[in-house]
Design a protein around this nucleic acid. Structure first.
Length: 289
DNA sequence: CTTACGGCCTGGGTGC
DNA sequence: TGCACCCAGGCCGTAA
């Protein structure tokens, strides 16, 4: 599942081949994951890719007119769960579930493959881009410690829900949230506002360390994630709790457990990550029986 | 206002 | 061999 480290790895790969290239042709298969496929097909051909960026889990392609045409567009791509972007020769075999082909002026091709089509593709004007990306929360690698502490520590929500919420923090997904909480020894059901100053600082440090290590290892390949050159990542070998239900905690030997928190499967060590004592906001705690 | 939660989209993997 | 079911991320509607 592409989260911040996987998207960062893909973007770094694309940065080596896309900037300066002009899109000469667009071919589409299934289009239900594209916001406006007609507009995409009309506007993209002829535009030049000025830059490739990552915003949270979004891949952002900044496009400019090639012939002094000042009209600027942005192609926004979200990989969802199973999205892949690769560049290859046009003659390369076509992977199943490949739904978009972008022919480039150097004779190569960028392809979008997505088994489940939970991904998303949108072409936006500059104004619409600000609206779409402006709601995202802080980048966990770029934001200051103070910003991090403010956005987590001031909220009465499960810390897991806060880390996963793209409007609070952009880029974290289920894997890196669970791995970070384990390393910080914080239970996913703790409330942000109940974390101590030390715990918030520790969490901030650990989130950055986990993400940076995962980027160094080119992300986690759980099922089918590959980068823009088709390579798998290796951070899955460093997972300490994610998908390890029933196995022993690598730190203390306790059995790793799974629980639904924030609507997501959450893996944690019940010894290293102590559950909060109070269950939730009690309205009718003392029920007469 | 804030937060919690269920449903929806899709299709590969799993288990009977 | 078939097939019902689970699950994933993001978003939206609803309820408290």
């Amino acid at each position: 599942m592409p989260e911040l480290p996987e998207v960062e790895t893909v973007v770094r790969g694309l940065k080596g081949v896309l900037p300066g290239r002009r899109i000469v042709e667009v071919r589409l298969g299934k289009t239900d994951f594209i916001e406006d496929p007609v507009a995409l097909g009309q506007h993209l051909p002829g535009l030049q890719i000025a830059s490739v960026r990552r915003m949270g889990k979004f891949i952002v392609l900044d496009l400019v007119g090639a012939n002094g045409n000042a009209q600027e567009f942005t192609l926004l791509i979200h990989l969802g769960m199973t999205g892949q972007i690769v560049t290859c020769a046009p003659a390369a075999p076509i992977a199943p579930h490949t739904h978009a082909f972008f022919a480039l002026d150097d004779g190569r091709e960028m392809r979008y493959t997505d088994i489940r089509r939970f991904g998303q593709m949108r072409i936006l004007t500059d104004a619409a881009r600000e609206k779409a990306l402006g709601k995202l929360g802080i980048d966990p690698l770029e934001g200051s410690r103070a910003e991090f502490i403010k956005s987590i520590g001031g909220r009465r929500r499960h810390v897991k829900a806060l880390l996963l919420d793209q409007h609070v923090m952009r880029g974290m997904g289920n894997i890196y949230t669970d791995e970070s909480l384990f390393r910080a020894r914080i239970h996913p059901k703790r409330l942000g506002s109940n974390l101590s100053g030390d715990e918030l600082q520790k969490l901030h440090k650990v989130v950055q360390a986990v993400l940076n290590e995962a980027i160094r290892l080119r992300g986690s390949s759980i099922s089918d994630y590959v980068d823009s050159e088709g390579r798998r990542g290796e951070f899955q070998l460093r997972h300490r709790v994610y998908h390890r239900e029933g196995k022993k905690c690598l730190r203390c030997g306790t059995t790793i457990r799974r629980a639904i928190v924030a609507g997501r499967s959450s893996y944690f060590c019940p010894s290293c990550q102590r559950a909060p004592r109070i269950r939730s906001r009690g309205r009718a705690i003392h029920k007469k029986s």
